[in-house]
Amino acid sequence: MDDNQKMKIQNFKYLNENALKGKILFTGSSLMEMFPVCEIARSRGIEQVIYNRGVGGLNTDQFLENIDILLLDLEPSKVFINIGTNDITEERYGSQWMFHLMNNFCKIIEITKSKFPDTEIYIMAFYPANLHLPWQTEESIKWMELRTPENLTTCNMLLKDIAKKYECNYIDCNASLIDENGEQKEEYAIDGVHMYANGYLKVFEALKSYL
């Protein structure tokens, strides 16, 4: 992890010391960190306490190393998890990236359920990406090259199977985010992976009934 990620996790550690237990938690990597779920929920009149413990750039190995701070310390009644898109790279894991990702995801679920069997776990489908935006560069396309609709669909099918295996909930909020090519709509896209708040407003509408 870089210094910025370490700073964020240390800050969450301090916040956790005063956080209320048994509340709603959203956790994961940048796709969760950038989700303004607390503000959107409040603007919709939802009064439940919601915490966000997303840290940009984390992969599943790093999440597991910090699972106490990013999940367990809060003892959530409900936890929404979006982690693993940073594992979608052969540079780090070779051709076994998908196996590594799903194996680690199972570990996250197993650890959570062993500590808090009554916690409701919500596995969030990976959002669509877009490799064909007009402002994409060769560097960004290289970084995203495995985040194809086909790979993301396969990952989401496997996440759905994991949810069934561990009796968790699987939430696919992607219906309003996908264009005719199965990619992230341009009007939501920052860089083809991350989204502006207008995209997250669509995500929130799809999951608000689970809060």
Rank of each mutant, 00 (worst) to 15 (best):
E110K: 13
A19M: 03
L70T: 01
P117W: 11
L31H: 03
V55D: 00
E91I: 11
I50C: 01
L211Y: 09
I88W: 14
D191H: 04
E138H: 05
E39H: 11
E75Y: 15
N86Q: 09
N156F: 09
E205I: 08
Q136D: 02
L58N: 06
G57Q: 08
N130D: 09
Y122E: 03
I40W: 08
L71Y: 10
S209Y: 15
F204R: 14
G28I: 01
Y93T: 06
I121V: 15
S209H: 15
M157R: 14
A206Q: 12
A41V: 08
F99E: 14
F126K: 10
S77N: 10
E110T: 04
K23A: 05
L70K: 08
A129Q: 09
G182L: 00
L20D: 07
Y14G: 09
K202P: 07
V49W: 06
V203G: 05
P128K: 14
D179G: 05
N198Y: 07
E145L: 09
A41S: 13
K6R: 15
T148I: 04
V49Q: 11
M102R: 09
P117Y: 14
A189N: 10
I121G: 03
L15D: 11
L15C: 12
N198A: 11
L131C: 04
A41D: 03
A163V: 08
M1G: 10
F99P: 03
D118Y: 14
G22A: 11
T112F: 00
G56L: 05
M144L: 13
Y122M: 12
Y196S: 08
K142P: 00
V55P: 06
T27Y: 01
I123T: 02
P128F: 03
F204E: 08
I121H: 02
S114T: 11
L158V: 11
L74W: 13
N11Q: 12
L152F: 00
S30I: 01
N66D: 01
M34P: 04
K165L: 14
M124N: 07
A19W: 07
D61F: 08
A163T: 07
M98I: 10
C168L: 09
T154F: 15
I67F: 03
G84E: 00
I83S: 05
N86G: 02
A175Y: 03
Y170C: 10
S95G: 08
R147I: 03
D118F: 13
I88E: 01
C168R: 14
Y51I: 00
H132K: 15
G199S: 12
K107Y: 02
R92S: 09
A206M: 13
E145N: 15
L152Q: 06
K142Q: 12
N82L: 13
M195K: 10
A175C: 13
N66M: 09
K6F: 12
L25C: 02
